[in-house]
Design a binder for these strands. Structure first.
Length: 216
DNA sequence: ACCCAGGGTCATA
DNA sequence: TATGACCATGGG
């Protein structure tokens, strides 16, 4: 399995190159982006972030001073804006509870994950995206593309839990945050390009490893 | 006029 | 435990 995971990574990296994830100038901005991009095109999330930036609201303190309706309005282009405004405020509440972003992000990884997961609206993928891309700790981020790609490669059944898949990567790859960052980003890139629900297998860089026969 | 995005939660069965 | 509904904007 370690060899296969390296093989897949190598091919994806050769095909697509470095993805430059995560766009964002500060850890807080990255974390905010992780919430805003839930089930949403990054393009739309980026618009919401641009709004927040223009409003100088990209710090926990400044965002906390915004009226709720104002926050909702700024976040609108990201979609699900009522939920996401509420989720951002819940995240701010966690930050306050730990005495600041630095204190929160300085927690041991497992405690940090648990703390993030305790926030209503932050689930496993969002929590791990924050831990990996905002904090830089080596947790592997699993998403729908990851699962789908592994299924089509015949490496998993599909019914595995989030934690099982995360463990699959973390116990078969070196605990290297830079590797995890790039790998996840490459899965997303490859997913969009070739491995959607409706597959687009022509020119697929990992077709030789893949069982999936349709649409050739 | 569809389909779908870098998810998560809650109600039902 | 396992589906389904819901949240909502913007691009293809």
């Amino acid at each position: 399995m370690p060899e296969k995971l390296r093989e897949i990574y190598g091919r994806l990296f050769s095909a697509y190159g470095p993805q430059g994830w995560w766009p964002g100038e500060t850890p807080f901005e990255v974390a905010v982006g992780a919430i805003l991009t839930q089930a949403t095109n990054w393009r739309n999330a980026a618009r919401a972030i641009a709004n927040l930036k223009a409003a100088r609201a990209l710090s926990p303190e400044a965002m906390g001073r915004l009226p709720h309706t104002r926050l909702t309005e700024l976040v609108r282009p990201a979609g699900f804006f009522n939920q996401k405004a509420k989720r951002l405020r819940a995240f701010l509440e966690l930050i306050r509870k730990y005495g600041g972003l630095d204190k929160l992000f300085a927690l041991p990884v497992e405690e940090l994950r648990e703390a993030l997961l305790s926030v209503p609206g932050i689930g496993p993928e969002t929590a791990d995206s924050i831990v990996l891309y905002a904090v830089g700790k080596p947790v592997f981020v699993v998403d729908a593309y990851t699962r789908r790609i592994l299924v089509r490669l015949g490496l998993i059944e599909g019914g595995e839990t989030y934690e099982e898949l995360r463990d699959l990567f973390e116990s078969n790859l070196p605990r290297d945050p830079e590797l995890y960052k790039e790998y996840h980003a490459l899965f997303v890139r490859h997913g969009k390009e070739h491995c959607r629900v409706r597959p687009h297998c022509k020119g697929c860089p990992i077709s030789e490893l893949c069982d999936f026969e349709k649409d050739k």
